Simulated scan of single mutants.
Amino acid sequence: MLNLIAIDDNASALSTIEKYAAKVAWVNLIATFTSPLAALDFLGENTIDVVLVDVQMQDISGLDFIHIVKQKQGTTIPAFIIISAFNQYAIQGFDLNISDYLLKPFGFDRFLTALEKVRVNGHAGITPVSSPSNIGLFVRQNSKHLQINPTTILWVASNGHTVQIHTRLDTPLLVTETMTHMESVLQPYGFHRVHKRYLVNRSHIKEINSSSIMMEYRPEPIPIGKTYRSVIRQMSSNSI
């Protein structure tokens, strides 16, 4: 059983989390908070497995909240899942070793995937369930689902009504998923959206320029979209 709390100053977002949590037999939503300060007091007196926390809140941000808890909790630190309508905090979040990053509005399947990751991999005092060390992601290809190891993906490109998944193989894998879905499931593995048509694996970036990115195993540069330049600046300010 995973015991969790959720923190968001948006009551509607908390209502959605309550609805989703009620569907999962091994999830126990202990409490919800609209105030991160109230949640800090609660964590000081209770042991929780998972904390879902928004980023933009009054009093303190979700990122500051995570930092404070990590300093105060000692060895018993819960897993953190950020829930946000904005993707620009993803790099900072994963630098804080969060377990997942959910982009609002997220569906039940994405919510379940995030919690299943914590349950399987374990975190802090959580004992992981038996599972293969490398769990693949399932992607749709017409009427079937294919399993792929996310660590083998170099970049993902939108191609009209399909998405191309590029690995070291010469021929990319064509799947019938959306870029929004691919972004949400690959973010925990170090992927970043750099353009409306491109999602890149941070581990395979060779060089970041002012308007493009050079990737391993790709001779042509990948363009950086204007709306993603703030994310790129944050990425390049950290070691890659």
Rank of each mutant, 00 (worst) to 15 (best):
M1C: 00
L2R: 01
L2S: 03
A6Q: 08
A6F: 10
I7Q: 03
D8I: 11
D8Y: 13
N10V: 13
N10T: 12
A11Q: 15
A11F: 09
A11R: 12
S12L: 15
T16V: 15
T16F: 10
I17P: 02
Y20V: 12
Y20Q: 09
K23C: 07
A25V: 10
A25F: 06
I30K: 11
F33T: 08
S35L: 13
S35E: 12
A38T: 12
A39S: 12
L40S: 09
L40V: 13
L40G: 06
L40C: 11
D41V: 15
L43S: 10
V50P: 01
L63M: 13
F65G: 09
I68R: 09
Q71R: 12
K72Y: 05
T76H: 13
P78K: 05
A79E: 05
F80G: 13
I81N: 02
S84D: 05
S84W: 07
S84M: 06
A85E: 07
N87S: 14
Y89N: 07
D95G: 05
D100Q: 01
K104P: 01
F106K: 05
R110E: 12
T113A: 12
A114C: 07
L115R: 01
L115P: 01
R119A: 13
R119I: 00
P128S: 00
P128A: 02
V129D: 01
I135M: 09
L137N: 00
R140M: 05
R140Y: 07
K144Y: 04
K144L: 06
H145I: 05
N149L: 15
P150L: 10
T152W: 03
T152D: 15
T152A: 15
L154A: 12
W155M: 13
H161T: 14
H161E: 12
H161N: 15
T162F: 13
V163R: 00
Q164G: 02
I165N: 04
I165F: 09
T167C: 12
R168W: 02
R168Y: 04
D170H: 11
P172T: 07
L173C: 04
E177T: 03
E177A: 13
E177F: 08
T178M: 08
T178W: 04
M179A: 07
T180S: 11
H181V: 01
H181S: 10
H181K: 09
M182D: 00
E183G: 05
S184M: 14
L186S: 04
P188L: 06
F191A: 08
K196V: 14
R197F: 06
Y198M: 06
Y198K: 04
L199H: 03
V200N: 07
V200E: 04
S203V: 01
H204L: 08
H204P: 00
H204Q: 13
I205W: 02
K206Q: 15
E207C: 10
I208V: 15
S210N: 09
S210F: 04
S211T: 15
M214E: 06
M215G: 08
E216S: 07
E220W: 00
P221N: 06
P221F: 03
I222N: 08
T227K: 06
Y228F: 15
R233I: 06
Q234T: 15
S237K: 11
S237M: 10
